[in-house]
Amino acid sequence: MAPEAVVFYVLASIALVSAVMVIWSRNVIHSAIYLVLTFFCVAAVYVLLRAEFVAVVQVLVYAGGILVLFLFAIMLVNLRDPLGSRLGVHATLSGIVGVSVVGMILYVYSTGRLARSLTLGPPTTGGGGNIQLLGDALYRDYLLPFEIASILLLVAMIGAIVLARQKY
């Protein structure tokens, strides 16, 4: 096996195991910590796929920002007693849906169609890698929508403050 493949399998198995632990663990804080681990492993897999930018964003946005939000939310609502694990109607239903989705994926995979459509193209290296491609797209081709998006975000922020403030 090529060294890259070994690294991939190690990372993938850590990611999968910790993903299972996210739902398995009874303590919500532990779940959140396992989620960080999953995010980091997925980010490493992105690096292996030569998608450096996505990897960086994964770490910054998901492992950084969103996880901190999760932890804040957990601490705010103060879930002291761990949730019980009763098998209600909802759990059964979601179990059935989950199993059938996995079955579908396995079926499509076994027909071989997925493998054909997912063959990797040549690595996108135009000198600066995919970060440069992304930069070109954002700051040159799509400059105008990018700038309007910044106004959009500003409006969202002002709106949130206006609505959340106690007084005018």
Binding site: Y142, L144, P145, I151, A156, G159
Partner: peptide
């Protein structure tokens, strides 16, 4: 183009969501 339409439409709509409330 559609991307500009989308972001511009959202800029307008977001302002209106806040103004309505």
């Amino acid at each position: 183009d559609f991307i500009t339409i989308f972001v511009a439409l959202e800029t307008m709509s977001l302002s209106f969501y806040v103004l309505v409330g």
